[in-house]
Design a protein around this nucleic acid. Structure first.
Ligand SMILES: NC(=O)c1ccc[n+]([C@@H]2O[C@H](COP(=O)([O-])OP(=O)(O)OC[C@H]3O[C@@H](n4cnc5c(N)ncnc54)[C@H](O)[C@@H]3O)[C@@H](O)[C@H]2O)c1
Ligand SMILES: NC(=O)c1ccc[n+]([C@@H]2O[C@H](COP(=O)([O-])OP(=O)(O)OC[C@H]3O[C@@H](n4cnc5c(N)ncnc54)[C@H](O)[C@@H]3O)[C@@H](O)[C@H]2O)c1
Lengths: 217, 217
DNA sequence: CTAGTATTGTGAAGGTTTTCACAAGCTGTG
DNA sequence: CACAGCTTGTGAAAACCTTCACAATACTAG
């Protein structure tokens, strides 16, 4: 029987909610790090991440053993481990498709670059927008998507196009070799196996809010 | 033993995921309605909403009995029932706080008004923005928040301010009597009991995407 | 009216996630 | 070195959610 720590997972299935919490823990750790704190207990990490100490320990135990009994976790070390688990050790190259209102907000959002997501190309289909300069680069014709994704080694696409266009753009993107997609259009996308989609849907958020509000009366 | 249909729930606890699916079903129903379809089976509703027929029926059964055995559901009737359950029978009055990049994208987003969310006031703290005209109304000083929320009977606030400012703005909003909040800033908010918060956090979405991508290697 | 077909509504089973509780183990102190 | 104090890591229990499977039932056709 091996005794290693920080062991690779035995390929257990990890729940979506566990992964989302890991991302939260990482943000909390970064705040602690900025505040100069070196150690943190599962108790404290939980309090700052709106969960419980047991949940924190269970989540981490899915991936290995990162703490010291009696003392807690080293902020920096655990942060490194989480970045590693979440696949954040090297920056990701992202295409933004749709240079409209949401697209421009995202393009200028420092929170993304900061976390290692580099928008390396922007696409649109509107001739009046194509060629316009955004930041260092230029808005490209979405027809070039396939070529550019290959040339720039893009792995992720953010879809910020109108709902009627989104499935078509998705098809182009998956043909181009994009493996992950963040979709802002309110439609469930059909994708080939091997492509992962995450949806951001404001209306669902708002409606789950109004549900809660009208329940609580 | 009563035999009523469409019974009010016996105040069971409804899971967040069930509510989110209801919102999805509603969108699907609206699409079917636009397409002129009158009846729908749980099977079809499930296929279009990326879930299973059993799940659809179970979700609906939490709130009552809306279908006809042997036939399915009336698109319009079920739509009405879902709007009722989700608290969408009358429009909600929303304050947008933070007239920056994300704020302006949201303000112009038709998808919200469309679904009965009316942005009736916009607030900022930047003197160069206050007083500027947006749509029919004007950007107001966030200092007026408390008064305006009362005057305009605002129930929901969308927070689109920088992360450093968000807890302060949240405190103002809850003092003002806002009961629901959609928060775009990447920080967990502390709120008094009776206030519900939903977070929209892009970085979590992207990181759960990169987790999936780096697992799947 | 009866038979036949289709689909709902729902207990029960099965599966997953969260919480509990405690042995294991690290560190500082005397 | 032994002990005290504290926190992790983890099986087991509890809670929660999804899937299964089928009786109940609505409607149509004959
Ligand atoms: N604006 C918001 O706050 C908001 C919020 C949530 C979701 N969304 C969703 O995000 C998407 C974009 O919204 P928006 O408000 O930015 O719209 P927008 O109209 O401002 O921008 C859409 C952009 O996509 C471009 N486009 C259209 N078809 C294209 C194609 N086939 N290929 C490439 N580019 C194409 C358009 O030229 C335009 O520049 C929509 O699906 C919307 O439902 C928007
Ligand atoms: N831009 C994006 O795409 C994006 C994406 C996800 C999340 N976010 C988050 O949304 C928030 C807003 O981002 P943004 O890019 O729109 O920023 P922004 O700087 O463009 O806009 C923020 C606005 O808030 C105003 N403001 C600051 N303090 C305020 C206060 N106390 N009261 C009222 N208004 C105040 C500012 O004057 C500014 O107009 C941030 O927390 C950001 O992390 C942004």
């Amino acid at each position: 029987m091996t005794r290693g720590r920080r062991q690779a997972p035995v390929s257990k299935k990890i729940s979506e909610s566990a992964v989302r919490r890991l991302s939260l823990y990482l943000r909390t750790l970064e705040e602690l790090d900025r505040a100069g704190q070196e150690m943190v207990s599962s108790e404290q990490l939980a309090a700052k991440s709106a969960t419980t100490a047991a949940q924190v320990r269970k989540d981490l135990s899915l991936f290995g053993s990162f703490g010291k009994r009696g003392f807690g976790y080293t902020v920096e070390e655990l942060g490194r481990a989480l970045r590693d688990i979440l696949g954040l050790t090297q920056p990701w190259r992202v295409a933004l498709i749709g240079a409209g209102r949401i697209g421009s907000a995202l393009f200028e959002y420092r929170g993304l670059t900061h976390r290692g997501f580099q928008i390396v190309a922007v696409f649109d289909c509107d001739p009046s927008k194509i060629g316009r300069k955004w930041g260092d680069s230029m808005i490209r014709d979405v027809a070039e998507l396939e070529r550019v994704v290959g040339d720039l080694d893009i792995q992720i696409a953010i879809l910020a196009v109108p709902v009627e266009a989104v499935q078509g753009v998705m098809d182009q993107a998956s043909r181009a070799g994009v493996r992950g997609v963040l979709n802002f259009a309110p439609r469930r996308l059909k994708v080939p196996a091997g492509v992962t989609v995450k949806d951001v849907n404001l209306v669902i958020e708002l409606e789950s809010l109004t549900f809660a509000l009208s329940q609580g009366v």
